[in-house]
């Protein structure tokens, strides 16, 4: 109990000097933004076009051997063996290779477990749709938040926190080389929904409750919110570990998990340092 008290005192002290703390998530957001701008994002086959094949080797070959075999038989240089794990291999092609040709080229060397090819028409279409989907998702979310609170400053604080979460998550993708793909876009949309949860919890508790000081209400909300975030992060970590170690081919799921873990970690900072900070500032100015 004594320890909990110490933590509460510590958090209490931190909360008292909330204004400089807003700078922490803000700085991380800026760093993430710079990372995206200068380091860029990888694009998956879904979005930039090309082909991805998961193979099972029938005989043992080295990465270099496999690459040169494919280059020779397919007559193109744009072939990259992404990983070899035992007999499982992932190969990426720069163009949307005809699967018939690939399977002929591999005859006797490997069989195809899964194959995905996306032509330039489709990839361009997907890219457009992604911008629309994310843009409208964010817009609809913002409108919903405004309808819920009907108060511009707290609503904007929630929306700002959500925007930071997304930017930090995308920055994390750039840092860890997680490609922008249909899966990671799904994760970003999921993050919009998830990250707003804790912000709504905080705003509702602080603005609508009458009992206790603002600090007490915020602390109560934090206890609930952090439990929520940790539960979500733990379940995503389970998903990530299983997909990475048991079925590396299910990249859809491991990408979603990784993006959500980064975003949810960011959400803890943006909610309790940035959103809460703005909210307290607002309440102080108002009274």
């Amino acid at each position: 109990m004594g320890e909990t008290l110490k933590v509460i005192v510590l958090i209490d002290r931190i909360l008292k000097s909330y204004r400089p703390l807003i700078a922490i998530p803000a700085a991380i957001t800026v760093i993430a933004l710079l990372l995206v701008v200068f380091n860029g994002l990888n694009e998956s086959v879904d979005l930039k076009g090309g082909a991805l094949a998961e193979l099972t080797l029938e005989k043992s070959v080295t990465q270099a051997e496999l690459e040169s075999l494919l280059r020779e038989k397919l007559g193109t240089g744009d072939i990259k063996v992404l990983s070899i794990r035992g007999e499982r291999v992932t190969v990426q092609f720069g163009t949307d290779m005809d699967v018939v040709k690939v399977s002929e080229a591999l005859r006797g060397t490997a069989t195809i477990n899964s194959y995905k090819a996306v032509g330039p028409v489709l990839s361009k279409q997907a890219m457009n749709q992604i911008y629309w989907a994310i843009g409208f998702a964010f817009l609809f979310m913002s409108v919903t938040v405004f309808i819920i609170f009907r108060d511009p400053v707290p609503s904007l604080a929630v929306i700002l926190a959500a925007a930071s979460d997304i930017i930090i998550a995308v920055g994390g993708m750039s840092l860890f080389g997680i490609p922008l793909s249909l899966a990671s876009v799904g994760a970003i949309l999921m993050l919009i929904g998830y990250s707003v949860d804790t912000d709504i919890l905080l705003t509702t508790r602080v603005l609508k409750r009458r009992k206790g000081t603002i600090n007490e209400r915020a602390l109560g909300a934090m206890k609930t919110g952090v439990t929520m975030s940790i539960a979500a992060i733990a379940s995503m970590a389970a998903l990530y570990l299983v997909t990475v170690f048991v079925m590396p081919e299910a990249r859809v799921l491991s990408d979603i998990a990784a993006v959500l873990i980064i975003g949810l970690l960011a959400d803890i900072l943006t909610t309790w340092l940035m959103n809460l900070g703005i909210l307290r500032w607002y309440l102080e100015v108002r009274s």
Binding site: S114, K116, E249, A250
Partner: peptide, 27 residues
């Protein structure tokens, strides 16, 4: 014109299904 192909072998599919169940339980 074929603009996109995406396919998964039955064996790999079965692994996906099993992996998803394991991941769900662990979560």
């Amino acid at each position: 014109k074929i603009v996109g192909v995406s396919s998964v072998s039955p064996e790999l599919g079965k692994q996906f299904a099993e992996g998803a169940v394991i991941a769900g339980l662990l979560a």
